[in-house]
Design a protein around this nucleic acid. Structure first.
Lengths: 345, 345
DNA sequence: ATGAAAGCGCTAACAC
DNA sequence: GTGTTAGCGCTTTCAT
């Protein structure tokens, strides 16, 4: 059942069927009606492959994530799909699983399917492997990776905004020994988060103690190890800020093992605000970076680029804010004196 | 850059290029070498759309899940992608988000892209809407939904196997008042799980107390509510089996609020073994239904159907086992007397 | 073994 | 406004 079959039955040409289906306004309403009738009767759906072949647009966007089983990504996928469907786009999802070979495969798959654009949500990994895509002028959107190339967009995350709130929140709770557990430092986004922490501390004149800045790896296990290490320090931290939520959850878990009560003995703040953050005990205070918003920005960036005929030579930049969301994993620093309400001590 | 360009530069016909690329053994090695050289130089990747158009096979499988943000699904997607890539298949992932309209959209998207088969991982929802797919003879694979139609496969989960182990484990720990929190009972899989529970209890002569069987909804919140209800019962349960892990995690959370210690005061067992089950505190004892295995079975079912020319009139049936995995959320029933090692009391 | 050419289902330029 | 037709990039007969 194809367009010719419809044309025959509706006693029009295939061109008219095509025009009708594509809602081109010039078709005579009575003909259009005949066409729609047949289309409905036969349950006809146009063949997208054929369409793509002739139009040169596949209406597929690639979405590369590092690992769909990482709780950070499903929300992105969901939001990306929702907006894609609204725009009659399909999404070709691939995971790199932190494996350069898989990344290469991903790129090949995208090119073979002739995607109209690719959103790279791997937070700073293997951009090198995207050469083929760039050479083909496929619109690309990254997070945190400023490439300043035509047809390449970049979503800049305003880490400082949320991290400053987090630091000041801890300071307000009279914490002074504040630790930071970083992500893997080969990721730009991890470096950016740590830098934001240092800046935010400096701003309010709080010392960043080098022995309280520990490299983690954005996993739960990494968070556990990092806290264990922090607890060996001469003067233990009373508050710890983590580069992502999984790390914070690892910290909470290690606290449990070490019989340290959160937030009474230790305040913990995460980053990302994955859904899970609401479900752990106690619910995790964290810096939100909206995954849905990120997905929407990425989609919009791609669509804009597809529809624009002369690309900006330096690409386009988008910005995403971050904000602290207060839950229950932070409290007044242990041993601190809460000033009396009337201001006297 | 297309097949003609390659043909020209390699001084062969397009047919030879096509044969070479498709590794048809009859091509003269020296010609093949020339072709590959040009292919590599130009970084040529065949256009899958064109291929699909002429071959009638898109090499895309649809994968319909109910909600990718539900922690049960990402592992399935990951495993499905991994095996799909190995077989040069692409995956068209759609979420229904429990919305019949989205389900309809999903089906339309699949048909328009001419998928070669569809795996329906929604556990018993809206099969009605798949009419179009069935009419087009698209190979389908379901979980738990026995349709016995040509080109539809069914993966039958052996719920009883794992649930029996769970029940007997609790019984061995001297639990007698065992509660069961079901899933939403419009899902076949939820009903099947409850039935398995009843059977397993009957088998060992343990009474299923109707007031200890509560309908949940497979969410964390549902688990919390269900436990709250159970605690109002005249004689409280000492053990509770849940229809899925999220429910069990809700139960754990509610216990925390109610100052009930797990496993000391209450033993909890989940179902599914999502990754999160290992991370909650205490780690959750649960019945494993391997998501990776499920995905592999589904893919294999689809591929088998695609490659078979005369389909079995009744479809094909696959089976997936379930098994208890012991962690730390269960213990001897409170108040029970552990027999002394030497057998005397 | 290789090449010429038809055709997959659709869109769009052109002619009427 | 509608129809005719070329052609998107590839595979696959059918000749040779």
């Amino acid at each position: 059942m194809d367009i010719r079959e419809i044309a025959k039955r509706a006693r029009v040409s295939t061109a008219t069927v095509s025009r009708t289906i594509n809602r081109i306004p010039t078709v005579n309403p009575s003909l259009a009606k005949r066409v729609w009738k047949v289309v409905d009767e036969l349950n006809y759906y146009p063949n997208t492959q054929a369409r793509a072949l002739v139009s040169g647009r596949s209406r597929i966007f690639g979405l590369i994530v590092s690992d769909i089983t990482n709780p950070f990504f499903p929300e992105i996928v969901q939001a990306f799909e929702t907006i894609a469907v609204q725009h009659h786009y399909e999404i070709l999802l691939t995971s790199t699983v932190h494996d350069p070979r898989r990344m290469e495969t991903s790129v090949r798959r995208m090119i073979e399917r002739r995607v109209d654009g690719v959103a790279v949500m791997t937070f700073g990994m293997e951009e090198l492997l995207l050469e083929d895509l760039k050479a083909r002028q496929v619109p690309l959107v990254f997070v945190d990776v400023g490439l300043a190339l035509p047809r390449v967009s970049n979503i800049k995350i305003d880490y400082l905004h949320g991290i400053r709130q987090a630091v000041q929140h801890l300071a307000a709770l009279q914490h002074e020994r504040i630790a930071f557990i970083t992500g893997p430092l080969h990721l730009k986004s991890a470096v950016a988060r740590r830098n934001a922490f240092v800046t935010a501390m400096d701003e309010i004149g709080l010392a960043v103690r080098p022995d309280l800045v520990i490299e983690g790896d954005h996993t739960l296990e990494g968070g556990m190890t990092a806290l264990a290490q922090l607890l060996t320090r001469q003067s233990r931290p009373t508050g710890v800020l983590c580069s992502n939520d999984m790390t914070a959850i690892g910290v909470m878990r290690q606290s449990y093992e070490e019989k340290i009560s959160i937030p009474r003995d230790l305040s913990v703040i995460g980053f990302d605000d994955i859904r899970l953050a609401q479900f752990v005990l106690p619910p995790l205070t964290t810096v939100q970076m909206s995954q849905a918003e990120l997905a929407r920005l990425a989609f919009r960036a791609l669509l804009t680029e597809v529809e624009r005929d002369t690309p900006a030579p330096q690409g386009t930049e988008y910005e995403l804010e971050t904000n602290l969301v207060l839950r229950e994993s932070t409290a007044l620093a242990p041993g601190s004196v809460r000033p009396a309400r009337n201001g006297k001590r």
